[in-house]
Design a binder for these strands. Structure first.
Length: 306
DNA sequence: ATCCACGTTGTGGGATCAAT
DNA sequence: ATTGATCCCACAACGTGGAT
């Protein structure tokens, strides 16, 4: 047996059942909210005070009402007990809260790990490492940042500016500032600047990386175009693929569906004609683009990526 | 006995956020 | 640019069955 994992029995069964909800949330971009919801549902079924090795009965689980309002956990009342009792109660409350926080972390990690395993996610292709990051930055000219919420600390320190300023000045006078951090960030900064300002890489590996990420990159943009214009949008792209000895390939992405019970996108609705006429038309065009090299099959990418 | 393969867990430290 | 708080990821460590 391998490591049995943090969740077993009914707990594991429950979490397994939440995997789809989680994947949907990843796709639609509301992971944080979904995880919180799953955590709530988990604690409804498996209260933090229920021993780990103990499962609720199926009847108990079936009786759970997720919409039922959670009662607040009672804070100990200092007036109704001795100091020692109060301290003990507060410690109990604290340890219970730590336990909850830890369990929430476990649930979050478990869901992330399972999702990664099921969907074969390449973390390097996401987020900051997205090969389209630099391109997107160039296309839009600037980042599109969402408005930021205020933290309690930031609100508080507005009222303390004078004191903070004075203390900081006193401290800064005592300590000399190290150079190593400066150097370290200088290197990263240079790499970033190069990535943003340099022309797109011509290396076959980089082309292949971008080809593989094309759908993931284009789909959200097409969806946004549909929303912004009220139109339907399709995207078509093609050319030699380094990973297939430079053979021509066509990728198309469609956004927007027909009305009706079973909504269909452009290529699905017009499947026959799309395959018979549309793709060959585009293929003929591509062949004329790459024939310049003599044979589009061989010459375009002599050092095909592995 | 010892090493290897593997699925999983926990965490240190870097990245990011939200503000000035 | 700079800050502290928070978030997140890569990776080390773990547990255990199977191979040698």
């Amino acid at each position: 047996m391998v490591n049995p994992g943090a969740f077993r029995g009914a707990r594991k069964v429950f979490l397994m059942g939440e995997k789809d909800t989680y994947s949907q949330a990843v796709e639609d971009g509301y992971v944080v909210e979904a995880v919180s919801k799953i955590q709530c549902r988990y604690f409804k079924r498996f209260p933090i005070d229920l021993p780990e090795e103990e499962d609720p009965t199926p009847e108990q689980l079936a009786a759970i009402d997720d919409d039922e309002i959670e009662p607040d956990f009672q804070e100990p009342d200092a007036e109704k007990m001795t100091m020692e009792e109060y301290v003990a109660e507060m410690e109990k409350l604290g340890s219970r809260q730590r336990k909850i926080a830890f369990k929430r972390g476990q649930i979050k990690r478990w869901l992330a790990y399972q999702h990664m395993k099921d969907h074969d996610v390449d973390s390097k292709a996401n987020g900051a490492h997205n090969p389209y990051g630099a391109l997107l930055y160039k296309l839009t000219g600037k980042e599109f940042v969402r408005p930021r919420a205020k933290t309690a600390c930031n609100v508080w320190r507005k009222t303390q500016r004078a004191e903070i300023e004075a203390k900081v000045k006193a401290l800064a006078a005592e300590k000399s500032i190290g150079k190593s951090a400066e150097q370290e960030s200088g290197v990263a900064q240079k790499a970033w600047e190069e990535e943003v300002s340099n022309p797109a890489s011509k290396a076959p590996q980089d082309h292949q990386r971008c080809i593989l990420g094309l759908i993931r990159f284009m789909h959200p943009i097409l969806d946004l175009i549909c929303k912004a214009t009220g139109w339907k949008a399709s995207f078509i792209a093609g050319g030699p693929e380094p990973a297939h000895e430079g053979k021509l390939n066509i990728i198309s992405v469609h956004s927007g569906m027909t009305t009706g019970n079973i909504p269909l996108d452009f290529s699905t609705l017009e499947r026959e004609g799309y395959k018979k006429h549309f793709l060959p038309m585009y293929g003929r065009f591509l062949k004329k683009c790459y024939l310049v090299y003599g044979s589009y099959r061989r010459v375009s990418f002599p050092c095909a990526a592995a």
